[in-house]
Nucleic acid binder design. Structure first.
Lengths: 208, 208, 208, 208
DNA sequence: GATGAATGAGCATTCATTCAT
DNA sequence: CATGAATGAATGCTCATTCAT
């Protein structure tokens, strides 16, 4: 029994080594240029071994999202317990997005990945459903959290607003960096200012 | 004289046929699965002929963004001339985003494309600079337009907020559709609600 | 009639323009990288027009040898008339090789071309025979010229010795230049020294 | 242990099988028509497998020259130890050229290859330098060997003379065969006669 | 478990050549 | 005469995946 336990532990460790490698390749090379060859090189395994731990390349990439989902879950649960007021709560939620972006940037990369056509065709429905289920749970956690913030819209709309704005901002900023104008750091500042816009409101603020 | 004119017209028509084909493939298959072979099939030309009209595959894909940039430019100039008040202006701006999304969805796809690492390596600096210049002009057009809307933030931040929120929402919605929950139409409704959030403000609305 | 004459003259002029272009491409790019596209660009004609004046690409390249063959013929006939003694004759023959190398370097390139397998398959037997005939005539001219130089070997062997040594030396020298050691000019000096070696053998033998 | 040894042996055998295939294609089809497809067919491997053993096509072709260089090295070292007199030495050197031509005809083909413009552009400087170094060593071996043969010229000139004459003769002969006059065997006889010409010059000069 | 070896299917791109105008 | 347009057939090379050991 001890043996099979150890085996399972080792197996898990190997899987995580593969995922760590995949994460670093994905960040550096992007989805188009992420190859199994390079993932294998980085975790010092043979390409063939990758397919012992994962069904195919897309399953490796998609498994990265489960890690991120867990990270989100923990963070959102902690926020729920904090019992913050509207203003500080929005600050904290936004700051948590920033934290995810810094510590799990792949989460944003993969989110975009999911929006690509045909990208989920090679994945079994079970995995697909699990992703839908678990990311849906997180979305509902965020929506519930934001329900109390504003009367202007239901929590799920606020959740969509915040997540989408943040995601969009990271993409815009990266594009600017790639095109040669704007720097990575500028994004943080812009995002802080956008948060202020979201918080204070646009027109309401203007009229009175 | 008539001959060379007609030739030029036909040439332009063919180029546009290639671009139309590229656009449809890009939408259906995504960047990863967009092949020159399929583009050629859809415009009923041989692969070789593609390279008679465009230098390489990336030039085809990039030419799509120039079309979109022009479309943006015209729309934004029209909006600038309309001389709308804050509320109607925001409505009109958002509605124009919707219009672009419906008529030029590739613009959003390619925007994401630009955020991919190493994606611009095969492109000459001149083209890169031109994209930066012309999309930057559009950004400034939007920023100037929004300058008068609110005192809470400069126009460029509002421009970033709106564009990024919209972009993020389209990605989120597409992801949901791909994952099997949510429908494409739902996105339009959600976006309308997010616009209300942005317009009325979040907290400001709540406290008084 | 004047018209058809002028036409013929113009046709010949165009052919020569193509050949001049082909020559310069062949020298710069080598056989492997000589393309009809580049030949067309250099003579400012369309690729299609090339095929109006020549049957196919190889015919263009091979036609270059006829120019060279004529050049050889004239030079050798002049040498034959000069009535030189052994020593000066060998000097003059060698110097004529140098002249061909400077003014018609393609002759050497194409000579190598002929030694490539399958290189003559696309050519009609008539053309092949004409090349064989006319270059054979030149060879015999050179052999006859050298017949009197030495008793050690028949003229045709001397002709082979000299031509082959010279050809081999040009190849060796070019290889060295390409590999990054040795300079183009060094070849001339080496060839002069090799001539001395050849002379000392051929002539020394004759006098005693 | 036995396993990895056997693997290494098999790997080497496969590489050599690829090289043997490449050699035969190169000889039959010439550089212009040597394709990876045909090399793969001849060694009964898939094209993809070729690239498992070699980085690219040029690396396959270049590896052929290293084999030849080693062959030259051994032959020249053996000749150096033989301690022959001028006449027999020249005979032996020439005969060794013949041996290389019969057993490693690709060496001559590739030598010509090196003289082509732009042919070495796809090769790393390290490999280029190694070729220059190792073929230069062989040249010096030959030059040293010939230093004692004649007072008429330094060894390196004699080396150039002999190598270039031989190379030129093989090219001339092949051209004649390709053009349809002259036979392959005739070349051997001609070369023997040219050797006599060279000998009569080089050695005669020494004795008096 | 792990991997060296192998590959089918595919990829963007090139090129000599043809043909309607 | 000249050419813009078009293409079939290759070409070198990549990549995710499989399998015997």
């Amino acid at each position: 029994m001890g043996v099979s336990e150890r085996r399972e532990r080792e197996r898990q460790a190997r899987r995580e080594a593969v995922l760590a490698a995949a994460r670093s390749v994905l960040l550096e090379r992007g989805m188009r240029n992420t190859t199994t060859k390079e993932i294998a090189e980085r975790c010092e395994l043979s390409e063939a071994t990758l397919f012992f731990y994962f069904k195919n390349k897309d399953e490796i990439l998609l498994s990265l999202i489960f890690e991120s989902i867990d990270f989100w879950k923990e963070g959102l649960e902690k926020l729920a317990k904090a019992g913050l007021d509207a203003g500080p709560l929005l600050d904290a939620v936004w700051q948590f997005h920033e934290k995810v972006y810094v510590e799990h940037p792949t989460y944003f990369v993969i989110s975009v990945y999911f929006a690509q056509p045909q990208m989920l065709e090679s994945i079994s429905d079970e995995v697909k459903d699990e992703i839908a289920l678990r990311s849906g749970e997180n979305f509902r956690r965020l929506a519930n959290l934001l329900e109390q913030v504003s009367t202007v819209a239901p929590g799920r709309i606020l959740a969509d607003t915040i997540w989408s704005a943040f995601l969009g901002l990271t993409i815009s900023n990266t594009s600017r960096v790639n095109l040669g104008y704007g720097k990575a750091e500028a994004g943080t500042k812009t995002r802080a200012q956008v948060l202020e816009v979201l918080k204070s409101g646009l027109i309401a603020e203007k009229s009175p």
